[in-house]
Amino acid sequence: NITNLCPFDEVFNATRFASVYAWNRKRISNCVADYSVLYNFAPFFAFKCYGVSPTKLNDLCFTNVYADSFVIRGNEVSQIAPGQTGNIADYNYKLPDDFTGCVIAWNSNKLDSKVGGNYNYLYRLFRKSNLKPFERDISTEIYQAGNKPCNGVAGFNCYFPLRSYGFRPTYGVGHQPYRVVVLSFELLHAPATVCGPKKST
Rank of each mutant, 00 (worst) to 15 (best):
N1S: 01
I2C: 11
I2V: 08
I2K: 15
N4P: 07
L5P: 05
P7Q: 07
P7H: 06
P7M: 12
P7D: 09
D9A: 02
D9F: 04
D9P: 01
V11I: 01
A14N: 06
A14R: 00
A14S: 01
T15P: 05
R16D: 01
R16A: 06
A18E: 06
S19P: 07
W23F: 05
W23Y: 00
N24Q: 00
K26V: 12
K26A: 00
K26Q: 03
K26M: 15
R27D: 10
R27N: 11
I28L: 07
S29H: 12
S29C: 02
S29F: 09
S29T: 10
S29G: 02
V32W: 14
A33C: 03
A33W: 03
A33Q: 03
V37Q: 12
V37W: 06
L38V: 09
Y39R: 01
Y39D: 13
N40A: 10
N40G: 02
F41E: 08
F41M: 15
F41S: 10
F41Y: 12
A42S: 03
A42H: 15
P43R: 07
F45H: 12
F45C: 11
F45N: 06
G51H: 02
V52C: 05
S53H: 05
S53C: 07
S53V: 09
S53M: 12
P54S: 09
T55P: 07
K56G: 07
K56A: 14
K56E: 03
L57I: 15
L57W: 09
L60C: 11
L60E: 14
T63N: 07
N64K: 02
N64V: 04
N64S: 10
N64D: 15
N64G: 15
A67L: 00
I72V: 06
R73M: 14
N75D: 07
N75R: 11
N75I: 02
V77L: 12
S78G: 07
Q79E: 11
G83N: 05
G83S: 05
Q84G: 02
Q84R: 02
Q84A: 15
T85D: 04
T85R: 06
N87F: 06
N87V: 12
D97F: 03
D97R: 04
D97P: 03
D97W: 12
T100Y: 15
T100Q: 08
T100V: 02
T100L: 14
I104W: 02
I104Y: 06
I104M: 00
W106F: 10
N107P: 12
N109K: 04
N109V: 01
K110Y: 12
L111A: 09
L111S: 05
L111N: 09
K114A: 00
V115T: 06
G116K: 00
N118T: 05
N118K: 00
Y119A: 14
Y119N: 07
Y119M: 06
N120L: 02
N120R: 03
N120V: 13
Y121Q: 02
L122I: 09
L122W: 01
L125T: 06
L125Q: 14
L125P: 09
F126H: 14
S129H: 11
N130R: 12
N130H: 14
N130A: 14
K132R: 14
F134M: 10
F134N: 03
F134E: 05
I138G: 10
I138E: 14
S139T: 11
T140G: 06
E141K: 01
E141H: 11
E141M: 05
E141F: 03
E141D: 09
I142H: 00
I142C: 05
I142R: 04
I142Q: 08
Y143S: 02
Y143W: 08
Q144M: 06
Q144R: 03
N147T: 03
N147M: 11
N147D: 13
K148H: 04
K148Y: 14
P149D: 04
P149K: 11
P149F: 06
P149N: 12
N151K: 12
N151G: 11
N151F: 02
G152A: 01
V153I: 14
V153P: 14
V153E: 06
V153H: 08
A154Q: 07
G155K: 02
F156S: 12
N157S: 01
F160Q: 10
F160L: 07
F160H: 06
F160G: 06
L162I: 01
R163Q: 03
R168Q: 12
P169T: 04
T170W: 00
T170K: 00
T170R: 00
Y171T: 08
V173D: 08
V173S: 04
V173W: 14
G174R: 09
G174S: 14
E186T: 05
L188Y: 11
L188E: 12
H189M: 04
H189T: 14
H189N: 02
H189G: 15
H189Q: 14
A190N: 15
A192I: 15
A192G: 12
A192P: 05
A192C: 02
T193P: 04
V194T: 10
V194C: 07
V194L: 13
G196M: 07
K198E: 08
K199H: 10
K199Y: 05
K199C: 12
K199G: 05
K199V: 12
S200A: 01
S200E: 04
T201H: 04
